[in-house]
Design a protein around this nucleic acid. Structure first.
Length: 440
DNA sequence: TCTGGGGTCCTGTTCCTC
DNA sequence: TCTGGAGGAACAGGACCC
């Protein structure tokens, strides 16, 4: 998908179509997740600090990501891909490999191109967004082709022309060559893909190590035999938070680590997994990052166990000077826990007793009294006003919230009104589908 | 200018076991 | 009994991707 998050926001908000839109973290330490093509013309790009983006494009619309909307659109697109082949390998919300041969939907270049053209039309019809398609004989080449096809295009690399196409391009075009490897190669006098091929495998391995060197050399020769893999189990689960202001207080650091451990276990359990290695991540005031890990005797999904391990790991870390980020992760994932193994051995009655006991610990939902909290209106999020209907938050502050009343189906930009943040007629709403669903 | 969050994979070092 | 080496697991860090 092209500039996915930003395009989805433009489709949802007619007043932003054709305008510079930047999606990302809006806090003091936020970075750009996606910039619309209009914003890119000002030099704004992914991973850029928000402050810098605002200096480059002060008049752009700045929005927080709405993953729920993106996931819904992503599901629609993945559904279209699965109609083409059972072998679909998602890389992220907005990118996937499809093995057309396995789906028997294409058998040569012309048939593949026809499938690609039809797919692009289907994506536009179903989601209202544009996607680009790259077609080639391997995953690496298809990926490069789709990058070259953006925005809103299709590129087929005819079999036999791969090396001629790659040769003159920068080494950075190859997946896996980032700034560090690019610099490394440049210092060795290697700037193009052809120069990697000329340098030879031995030289590449000497420069970059065995795995990276042999892999890069193979890619430079357009060799890539990796199959499209439909099902892939995740290998770790982690959560991390960057704080608006560095934390100096050791007690606060400890409580944050406990909270992160709980959130991590929640995610782990939601995925039905457990893990054996607990990882603590600390980014200090000077951006230096360190990790500490501990491997347990068996996999667990017990929040207490993960919390304790994270706390032990923290004891060995010096946080004087302050921390800007903390993270807790679990790796070495399994589908069972150490406790499961004990449980299997235990008598059925004991097991039942243990379950009852565990249930006692969890506070019933009814007992939790909802405290009145100040409502937060996030820029870009959908709202509904009892009188004016559907709209989205354009901005908020100083006790006021500004709403633009328009939907994805509005034909012209909607009107803007400002309300008190606690206006009882205003409430948060779910995102609307980008393409109007016909009412029967 | 001042650097997110969630992942994957690789490498070098150290420690342990055989 | 001591020593050397091989090999694997654990650990820490770094590069990369979206």
């Amino acid at each position: 998908m092209d500039a996915f998050y930003a395009s989805a926001e433009q489709a949802a908000k007619p007043s932003l179509r054709g305008k510079a839109v930047v999606v990302g973290g809006l806090g003091p330490r936020g970075v750009v997740a996606t910039a619309s093509y209009e914003a890119r013309r000002f030099g704004v790009h992914s991973a850029m600090p928000m402050g810098q983006a605002r200096r480059l494009a002060p008049n752009a619309a700045y929005l927080v990501p709405r993953f729920r909307l993106y996931r819904e659109v992503s599901d629609q697109v993945m559904g279209l891909l699965r109609e083409l082949s059972p072998l679909v390998e998602p890389l992220s919300l907005d990118e996937a490999f499809v093995d057309l041969e396995a789906g028997e939907t294409a058998w040569d270049a012309p048939s593949a191109e026809a499938v690609g053209l039809r797919l692009r039309a289907d994506i536009r019809r179903v989601t209202g967004l544009t996607g680009s398609v790259g077609i080639a004989v391997s995953k690496m080449l298809a990926k490069i082709a789709s990058e070259e096809a953006k925005p809103d295009g299709l590129l087929l690399i005819p079999p036999g022309t791969e090396r001629a196409m790659l040769g003159p391009k920068s080494v950075r075009i190859l997946p896996g060559v980032g700034p560090a490897t690019g610099d490394h190669l440049r210092r060795a006098g290697i700037q193009t893909v052809e120069e990697i091929a000329e340098a030879g495998e031995d030289e590449l391995v000497r420069l970059l190590g065995k795995a990276h060197g042999t892999h890069l050399y193979a890619m430079a020769l357009a060799r890539d035999e990796r199959p499209v893999v439909a099902e892939r189990d995740s290998k770790s689960v982690s959560v991390e938070d960057t704080y608006d202001v560095d934390i100096h207080d050791r007690v606060r650091v400890r409580t944050e680590v406990q909270r992160l451990a709980d959130r991590c276990v929640e995610r782990l359990r939601a995925a039905g997994r457990s893990g054996r290695t607990v990882v603590l991540k600390v980014r200090r005031y000077d951006f230096s990052t360190l990790t500490r890990s501990e491997t347990l005797r068996g996999p667990t999904d017990d929040p207490g166990v993960v919390r304790e391990a994270a706390a032990r790991l923290l004891e060995g870390v010096d946080t004087t000077g302050g921390v800007r980020l903390l993270g807790v992760g679990v790796s070495g994932l399994a589908d069972f826990t150490q406790e499961d193994l004990f449980a299997q051995a235990a008598a059925a009655s004991e097991e039942a007793a243990a379950v009852e006991e565990a249930e006692d610990v969890v506070a019933p939902v009814e007992d939790v009294v909802a405290e009145p909290v100040e409502r937060k209106w996030m820029a870009g999020h959908d709202v509904r006003h009892a009188e004016f209907g559907a709209g989205w938050v354009q901005g908020s502050g100083l006790g006021r919230v500004t709403v633009r009343f328009e939907t994805p189906y509005s034909t012209s930009p909607g009107r803007v009104r400002t309300f008190a943040v606690d206006d009882p007629l205003l409430e948060p709403a779910d995102p609307l589908p980008l393409v109007e669903v016909p009412v029967r």
